[in-house]
């Protein structure tokens, strides 16, 4: 192969060398995080550090329950926010996207523009506006963590929009729905039994990305002083950095696993279609 190369592709050796170096450099901080979470106490006089799983066991030790309680509460709050944000994507964004595709294709551009605005307006800017909004929201619903889902739903829009939009572009929903209608299906049937099954892959991807973004969201929760997974992590980092390290590592791995799952889902779908 190397003799007849004239395109852009690197040789196998070049690729291996570059990717190994990059892989190693990117693994260092994560390994350091792991090593840090396994440290027990400070190094002794001669600089020898002892290691063990003590901090991992501490998490389940009833004696430390009050220390780690905010972390589990925060994680619980984040999961509730996740559920509501996913609901916002499925109940508000998805039907709107399908409706625009079917009935208002002229507005597709506008919808896309709206959905990517949150990239142009940084979260740290939006929160300045969320603070007065949330003083109203707090009067209506009380100052509870789940209300953050409304704000985070906006941050999630660009991430949630793209997989569904990409899926929609590849499926001719207009023809499909017309075919279904002419065969006597009701609109409910068209949506639930024809369109949604065809968008399954895009919907799943956007739900997973939504979950990952919500679990990683820090800015809004921190400015609006709510206890979520990330703000609890930031708080516990001050008192018990080891446990913060364990949870950070765990969260990164879970997010990674979710995204690998999206990737595999995508490729399985593509293979099925091409065969």
């Amino acid at each position: 192969m190397s003799a007849s190369r004239y395109g852009a592709e690197p040789s196998r050796v070049t690729r291996t060398v570059i990717l190994s170096i990059v892989g190693a450099v990117f693994l260092i901080p994560l390994l350091a995080l792991l090593q840090f979470s396994l440290r027990i106490g400070q190094p002794d006089a001669s600089g020898v550090q002892t290691f063990g799983t003590q901090h991992y066991l501490d998490i389940f030790n009833p004696a430390f329950e009050s220390t780690y309680d905010p972390l589990f509460t925060g994680l619980g709050n984040s999961l509730v926010i996740c559920a509501i944000t996913v609901l916002i994507v499925l109940v508000l964004l998805l039907p709107t996207m399908i409706l625009v595709e079917l009935k208002f294709p002229r507005y597709r551009r506008i919808l896309e523009f709206v959905c990517i605005i949150p990239i142009t307006i940084p979260a740290v800017v939006l929160v300045v506006g969320f603070i007065p909004i949330y003083s109203v929201v707090a009067q209506v619903f009380g100052s509870t963590p789940w209300t953050l889902a409304f704000a985070i739903g906006v941050i999630v829009l660009p991430y949630a929009y793209r997989p569904i939009a990409a899926n929609l572009a590849g499926v001719d929903v207009v023809t499909l729905s017309e075919a279904a209608r002419s065969l006597g299906a009701s609109w409910t049937d068209v949506i639930t039994r024809v369109i949604v099954p065809n968008l399954r892959r895009g919907i799943l991807s956007s739900v997973f990305i939504t979950i990952a973004v919500v679990l990683g969201e820090y800015t809004i929760a921190s400015f609006l002083s709510q206890n979520t997974f990330q703000t609890a992590l930031a708080l516990i980092q001050q008192t018990d950095p080891y446990v913060a390290a364990i949870f950070a590592l765990f969260a990164l791995l879970v997010a990674f696993a979710l995204l690998v799952l999206i990737g595999r889902l995508g490729s399985v779908g593509r293979k099925r279609r091409s065969s």
């Binding site: 990952a212 950095p241 950070a248 990164l252």
Partner: peptide
């Protein structure tokens, strides 16, 4: 798949946890 997923995690999700990782590094 691995590269894309790892990239998404670090680019979109990392934030606070990257800071912890670098405190440890």
């Amino acid at each position: 798949t691995i590269v894309d997923s790892a990239s998404s995690v670090l680019a979109q999700f990392g934030g606070l946890m990257l800071a912890f990782a670098f405190i440890a590094t």
